[in-house]
């Protein structure tokens, strides 16, 4: 069971790295697909939500971007970068 969890986390991390690659190359739809998959394997990784937020914001889908940044800050309350993006979108 523990081994299984560990594998899931690793898989999520690999998918996150792939998502980052797609994001940096402006392949936003591909990035969303792999990041959503990553999130299923590890729903407690704030970085995955942050990257989903970035991709949605880059696409100007601001509603989804806000939802993702909010999730990132819920998972990790010290995630300042996600908080900064959220504050900017909400208009603080």
């Amino acid at each position: 069971m523990n081994n299984n969890n560990y594998n899931h986390k690793e898989l999520a991390q690999d998918l996150l790295e792939l998502g980052k690659f797609y994001f940096l190359n402006e392949k936003y739809d591909e990035a969303i697909k792999v990041l959503q998959k990553a999130q299923k394997f590890n729903p407690f990784c704030a970085d995955i939500y942050y990257h989903l937020g970035l991709v949605y914001e880059a696409k100007n889908n601001l509603h989804n971007a806000k939802v993702m940044y909010l999730k990132a800050t819920e998972v990790d309350s010290q995630f300042t970068l996600a908080q900064e993006h959220l504050d900017k979108l909400v208009g603080k």
């Binding site: 994001f23 190359n25 880059a58």
Partner: peptide
Amino acid sequence: KKVPCINESGESDF
């Protein structure tokens, strides 16, 4: 345009 980049702290950003 929003251009994806790696910021000064090494994090993805744009």
